[in-house]
Design a protein around this nucleic acid. Structure first.
Lengths: 76, 76
DNA sequence: GTTTTGGTTATCATAAATGATAAAATAAGT
DNA sequence: ACTTATTTTATCATTTATGATAACCAAAAC
C-alpha cells in the first residue's frame, strides 16, 4: 500500500467518522453534497483520491471547515 | 464565476503565497513534488481543481500541513 | 543585444474522479 | 421470517486532473 492509498484511506475514515458523529446517513449527506451515493461509499472506503471541491462540499454540508476534514493526524 | 472556480482561484493564490514566502521557484517546487511545471502553473492560476494527493505533496514539500494549505479564510 | 531564469500558454494523451444505474449485501425494525 | 433502510459493489460513460512536450513571454543578468 503506497503513500497515496494510505492518504485515501485516512481521509475516508475521517469523513465517515465526522459524518457518523452527526448521526447523518451516508446517502443523505451524499445527496446534500450532490455526490452519487455509490461514489460517496467508495470515498469513505478509501477507494478514491477526492478533489478539493468534493471535499469542500462535504465540509460545507457537515458545517465544518476544510481544515477540519484534512486534519488527519488529529483523531476524534 | 461559480463556486468551484472561486475555490480553485483561492487555493491557487494560497499555494503561490506560501511558496513565495519560502522563496522557492515554482518550477523547483513542482519538481520536488513530481508535478509538471505547466501543471503547477495552471494550479496556481486557479485553472484546476487539485486532488487531495496533489495538495498533500505540495504541503509535504513546503514543510507544512494540509490544514495550512486549505485554510483559505486565513490570509497571510 | 543576447543569454539565463522563471513563468505562462497551448495541445494532446492518459489516468482517474465522478456520474449514473443496478444489483447484492448488511443491519435494523417490526 | 419479513420488510425497510443503509451501505457496498460492479459496471459503464463522461468529465477532468495530470503527464508530457513544446513554444512563447517577461524580466533580470551579463
Amino acid at each position: 500500500m503506497d503513500d497515496k492509498d494510505q492518504l485515501q484511506v485516512a481521509i475516508g475514515k475521517r469523513v465517515k467518522m465526522l459524518r457518523e458523529k452527526q448521526g447523518i446517513a451516508q446517502q443523505d449527506l451524499a445527496a446534500k453534497c450532490n455526490i452519487e451515493k455509490s461514489n460517496f461509499s467508495r470515498l469513505e472506503a478509501g477507494g478514491t483520491n477526492p478533489t478539493l471541491y468534493t471535499l469542500k462540499r462535504i465540509a460545507d454540508n457537515l458545517g465544518i471547515t476544510l481544515c477540519d476534514i484534512v486534519n488527519l493526524e488529529d483523531k476524534k
